[in-house]
């Protein structure tokens, strides 16, 4: 009997070694997908996970190994804060929405008010529970186009970048995306102006995730970089708006 204990013990040891989490050397940043270009330039060398803010918040609530949460809306950061899952959130960037068509604009859309036409266009928008979708509905409401999402054929996405590709590849005749995403895709998209008065207030919030084993120091470094002069410069270069200096 003792003879097979050794191979078994060896096998179990190997399994344990193989499954052991890799030693943390970098900070893990969970960031809204609209930040996917700018975050690596501000805080290089860290692990990043880009997705819809709602998905990220859900993953963190389920115990995901995040150290920093960068949310495209206060709602999700505040939800984690209320649950004791992160420290006080800080506003670090602002954004606006842009109404876009494919560069060739096959449907010939020139004004956002055309969405009021019944039976109208194929639209790509954010889902009703993700920040982009909530902002889009606010914008449409302010424009008196509250029924636009019923009058057109609307495809809803959980990720802002999926809305961008759907319009860029011509599946949708138009869509509402973050202005920063528009600047990153100007060759494939055409922007159609929207009255500034209808713009929703879009605030990005950062917070240090609270969980046992979190890289709190690394997380604080990431956030102070976001709020620093160079961080603000990088955000401005990526066409984000900036909150007043704190």
């Amino acid at each position: 009997m003792p003879r097979f204990r050794l191979p078994c013990a060896l096998a179990l040891t190997l399994l344990a070694v193989a499954l052991a989490p890799v030693a943390a050397s970098a900070t893990t940043i969970y960031a809204a997908s609209s930040l996917s270009k700018v975050v690596p330039t501000i805080a290089p060398g860290n692990r990043t996970n880009f997705a819809g803010s709602d998905t990220l918040a859900f993953q963190i609530e389920q115990g995901a190994p995040a150290d920093v949460f960068l949310s495209a809306a206060p709602l999700y950061a505040q939800r984690l804060y209320a649950k004791g899952l992160c420290d006080t959130p800080n506003v670090f960037a602002l954004n606006t929405l842009t109404f876009v068509t494919p560069a060739s604009n096959p449907a010939g859309i020139t004004r956002v008010q055309q969405l009021d036409k019944p039976g109208g266009y194929r639209l790509a928008v954010g889902g009703k529970n993700v920040p982009l979708g909530i902002y889009t509905r606010t914008l449409l409401g302010k424009l008196g186009l509250g029924r636009a999402l019923q009058k057109n054929t609307v495809s809803q996405y959980q990720k802002a970048t999926d809305v961008v590709s759907t319009v860029a590849l011509g599946s949708a005749a138009a869509g509402f995306i973050y202005t920063t995403d528009w600047y990153a895709n100007t060759s494939r998209l055409r922007a159609i102006s929207v009255p500034a008065s209808a713009q929703p207030l879009i605030r990005y919030e950062a917070c240090v995730v609270r969980r046992s084993g979190a890289d709190t120091a690394g997380a604080k470094t990431v956030i102070s970089r976001l709020l620093s002069l160079s961080g603000r410069q990088a955000l401005a270069n990526a066409h984000f708006g900036l909150p007043p200096k704190s």
């Binding site: 709602d54 998905t55 918040a57 859900f58 790509a124 889902g127 529970n129 993700v130 054929t153 609307v154 495809s155 809803q156 996405y157 959980q158 999926d162 590709s165 759907t166 599946s171 949708a172």
Partner: peptide
């Protein structure tokens, strides 16, 4: 499906797409 057909309610929103959309509304 999501990329090619989109997620249009009652037209192209299949069960797997609905799971994803429901995640944050109601686990």
């Amino acid at each position: 499906t999501l990329l090619f057909a989109g997620s249009v309610a009652r037209v192209t929103e299949t069960l797997p797409l609905a799971v994803y959309a429901q995640l944050d509304v109601n686990l």
